[in-house]
């Protein structure tokens, strides 16, 4: 277990995705231990969300009973890891296929590990925001406020997790292109990869200029000039584009999965159910919550 936590720590610190370790075109991660830690983090956040009805004083018109509130807490703790696992399963095939289509040499297992690592980042972020969620559960009895708070928390986590995924893919593509160019330069043996500077994950929302993360060594520059390598920029650009679109898909799927698996928080006005009727969708629900929040008297 401790080893698994160290693994998670290495992912967070970026040790697992340094250029030197990505050089082989794969990511070194023991999946089994990592998955256990991820489930644990998911359970923690699930407990934080689901305890809403346990912690805040119930209003008089609340339908939910104490037993229901306990059940909801338990159900959320079970469903939250499930949500991330299902999102992983649903988005993995498309990531792999697109990844292969744009010419990446990442193998199936490596793509899986990359996705798992990104989701581990998300889970670490949500779990770390758990104390704040619990605090607000204690203080507020407004259900729409909690909904929106949790949407924000998950949104922040998703953003950071996907930024991690994008950065790592970006690095992998760069390394591969470098290698290709090295081979193209033929006479020159594959140049050493760029020194493993402790590159932080680029700030979300800020797109660094092309290749800003990776300083090219001079002989790579040379290789670039020697062979007419239009393809380099071309594939690279395309790959970036495809992966960006895929992240949007990931976000949509994650959001909608959370809607399908609801309730996580549990409105005080309905008795406990494992799953609610299949109606409406995530985005309408967020709009409704916003409306409800701002129409209080």
């Amino acid at each position: 277990m401790r080893k698994a936590f160290r693994q998670l720590d290495e992912i967070l610190r970026g040790d697992a995705t340094q250029l030197s370790s990505l050089e082989q075109g794969q990511i070194e991660l023991p999946l089994k231990g990592l998955l256990m830690v991820m489930v644990l983090l998911g359970v923690i956040y699930g407990l934080c969300i689901g305890s809403f009805n346990l912690l805040h004083p119930l209003e008089e018109d609340a339908v939910i009973t104490t037993r229901d509130a306990w059940m909801q807490t338990f159900a959320s703790a079970v469903k939250l890891p499930l949500l991330f696992c299902l999102t992983l399963l649903i988005t993995f095939p498309s990531l792999y296929v697109f990844n292969a289509l744009v010419g990446s040499r990442l193998r199936l297992l490596s793509v899986l590990k990359l996705l798992v690592a990104s989701i581990a980042v998300m889970l670490a972020v949500v779990a770390s925001l758990g104390p704040i969620v619990v605090f607000f559960s204690l203080c507020t009895s407004s259900y729409p406020f909690m909904q929106l708070l949790n949407v924000t928390v998950s949104g922040v986590a998703g953003f950071l997790g996907l930024a991690f995924l994008l950065r790592t893919l970006h690095r992998l593509v760069l390394i591969q292109e470098n290698k290709l160019m090295g081979e193209a330069a033929a006479a020159v043996p594959p140049p050493p990869p760029a020194p493993p500077i402790p590159t932080p994950v680029a700030p979300p929302g800020v797109v660094p200029p092309e290749g800003a993360n990776v300083p090219f060594s001079p002989d790579i520059e040379q290789a670039k000039k020697l062979s007419a390598l239009d393809r380099y920029g071309y594939t690279h650009q395309k790959a970036k584009y495809v992966v960006r679109i895929w992240t949007i898909v990931f976000g949509l799927v994650g959001a909608q999965m959370s809607w399908v698996l609801r309730p996580f928080i549990g409105t005080p006005n309905l008795p406990f159910e494992w799953f609610r009727e299949r109606e409406s969708n995530f985005f309408l629900a967020v709009l409704n919550a916003l409306q409800a929040l701002f129409s209080i008297d």
């Binding site: 967070l12 932080p200 994950v201």
Partner: peptide, 18 residues
């Protein structure tokens, strides 16, 4: 301070400032 710290710790790690 205590409630805000865990998240800040994780974000610091992610940005390589651990």
């Amino acid at each position: 301070f205590g409630l805000s710290l865990p998240f800040f710790y994780v974000v610091n790690s992610l940005y390589g400032l651990r």
